[in-house]
Write a protein that binds this DNA or RNA. Structure first.
Lengths: 122, 122
DNA sequence: GTAAAGTCTGACATCAGTGTCAGGTTCAAG
DNA sequence: CTTGAACCTGACACTGATGTCAGACTTTAC
């Protein structure tokens, strides 16, 4: 598929898809005329990239991480270096803290919403 | 306490504390000479603000939210307007999605870490 | 009263992903 | 072949919290 369809199907802008390619997160074949042609699996890949971005990982780290993923398609997976493992462990801990913070914030919001939504006392 | 101590105790930079004040998130008394003087409760307030920032809320929304919080000190709480409730509900949903994304990303990282850490097969 | 540490305001820089625009090329349908 | 939609590259702008610096003032300790 071409970039427009991939953008539509993932909800990610064409601009971002091109950016992902520059950052080495996403590959594409090119037509004779130079237009990007994506494989079907690009859809899942893009969604994953977005999730990792949402988790606060920067593109550089995502680029290192992706080749080390256990790939259902059984691609030629690299094994993460010890340095990368250290970094990823730090990221994982950061994510755990972030989930904790989010849970707290969610409770705060929930409390305000509940309080405001309750019947007003006579 | 003055700004330096508050920064130290919360782990938030003085720069950010001043920014919070400009954004209407944090109030301070001033000494005769114009220096900020914070009450003890500012510590918890700052930590809460940080958590809300971490949850992706923008300062404007935090500024609206804070006066509507159920305050253990029983301050003069505002009741959230219906509009604000709508917005906060949207934020809560966003946070729920974010927690879902984070959980996915955490699993991805965990998988890579585990795979890389496992004993190498002979 | 003086020195040193702390604080003030205001301005400019940074980051990284994304939006947007311009000017040109490619593709697919008629 | 033509036309319009889709795509290309490159460049610049934006966001919003935070870093950093300059120059001046305040506070505290001696």
């Amino acid at each position: 598929m071409r970039i427009g369809e991939l953008a539509r199907r993932t909800g990610v802008s064409e601009r971002s898809l091109r950016y992902y390619e520059v950052q080495g997160l996403l590959v594409s074949d090119r037509t004779a005329g130079g237009q990007r042609e994506y494989a079907e699996r690009a859809v899942d890949r893009v969604i994953l990239i977005q999730e990792l971005f949402a988790a606060g990982l920067h593109s550089k780290k995502i680029a290192e991480l992706l080749p080390c993923m256990r790939d259902p398609d059984g691609g030629p997976n690299e094994r993460a270096t010890p340095e990368l493992v250290t970094e990823l462990t730090a990221e994982r801990d950061r994510i755990d803290r972030m989930i904790g913070d989010l849970t707290t914030s969610r409770a705060v919001l929930d409390d305000v919403i509940t309080t405001a939504t309750r019947e007003l006392p006579a």
